[in-house]
Amino acid sequence: MTHLLEINNLDVKFDTDEGRITAIDNVSLTLDQGKVLGIVGESGSGKSVTAKSIMQLNPGNTIYNDNAEIIIDDEDVLKFTSKNDLKKIRGGKVSMIFQEPMASFAPAIKIGSQMVEQLMIHKPMDKKEAKNISIDMLNRVGIADAEKRFNQYAFELSGGMRQRAMIAMALSTMPKLLLADEPTTALDVTIQAQVINLMKDIIKEYNMGVIFITHDLGVIAQVADDVAVMYLGSVVEQGPVNEILKNPMHPYTKGLINALPDINNLDAPLTPIPGNIPSPLDRPSGCVFRTRCPHASKEGKEENIEMGLVEVKPGHWLDKCGVDCGKI
């Protein structure tokens, strides 16, 4: 069976004034239709860069490696040469929802015009039809008074409403793949609960594949089927969400879970992961997590380990260095 999305051996580097930065190192992911893949990680872990690579939205100083592949529907996005090819992907087969809904709408153009514009680019239809579909979609995501909202500007909507409108816009072209980059992070918890429930319903209804990026493990637990944990550009652990969160094996995944305040166990101490996230300019060699790993050896032999995922249980993938470091 072919996958909806297949990322193979992706490296992403940025050329900056201070030197070449590795943002993504040898990441491979697959996603099937109707599934939600969560990507968790802290700032600088490369979650957003991964999503932007799929849409080819990374800036001009980006360097991809030659043997990388990002295959959507049997087509390799990285081999696209013309803008027209990309148009099929951007907003067509793939839609993206960003974190800050205020920044994603043009401030001086009515919400409705923006929705109609992108629909007409991707689907052969006239303005009237596009308007009807847009208003339907706004209704579908629970915006009351959709017709009125259609003629308003982004600033006239509240934060939760804007994010709903963003979701409506992203889904109106019926994408096969939805990239959601921290879609609930800027929202209050009660609104976050509304948006998560809405997204779950819609994902089921349209049977699309979703990459859900967040730093919030609780959100991942509630929406994702599978999860990939990223640290400094590498995937360190990956598998079904239930398995990874209940039976974490990599010291970073364990550390993330322990650092989280648990509302059901107020006596548990908060255990931070020691040290700071290294700057991408001095990315550790070998195992990227070794500078903060509680199991790192004194003589620093993790420096020479080559990272790579191995399957420790059916479906549960773990970085090589993490396999035995707990046991040493």
Partner: peptide, 25 residues
């Protein structure tokens, strides 16, 4: 009560639904 129930649980099997508040503040 609604605020507390809105915190997403880290346990994937705990799908207890949030008390959904209608509308916004």
């Amino acid at each position: 009560k609604a605020l507390l129930s809105s915190i997403p649980s880290i346990d994937p099997e705990n799908k207890s639904k949030a008390i959904e508040l209608e509308g916004e503040i």
